[in-house]
Amino acid sequence: MKKFMKILVMILVIIVIIIGIVTITNWNDINNFRPMVSGAFSKFMCSCLFVEQRTEEQCLQWSKLDLPVSSYSVNQNEKSVTASALGKTSKASYTNERFGCTLQ
């Protein structure tokens, strides 16, 4: 039993070390990636709601990403969508009928 526990701990340590190395070597990419989910979601939702003029339910289905957002809000007055995920917040705003939405 003790031997089994030792092996298990060693495997866990190796996994943690590998994750650490991958994180350090890709830190720049990981850090750059963090606004991806909130950015994509807010932009998708803004264009879906205010350009394609679909319902919020349809837009939520369409905008759903593999990683979920922690929160989002739609401001119907200023026609914008704000979303948060992975500790980052992004906002996409509707400009006009020609230029649609822009991720700020």
């Binding site: 990636f33 991806m36 950015g39 994509a40 991720l103």
Partner: peptide, 16 residues
């Protein structure tokens, strides 16, 4: 490959 994608970076993160 979302971490390495230049398309994602351009549209939604460092390049948008």
């Amino acid at each position: 490959s979302p971490l390495k994608s230049t398309v994602n970076a351009m549209l939604f993160t460092v390049g948008h």
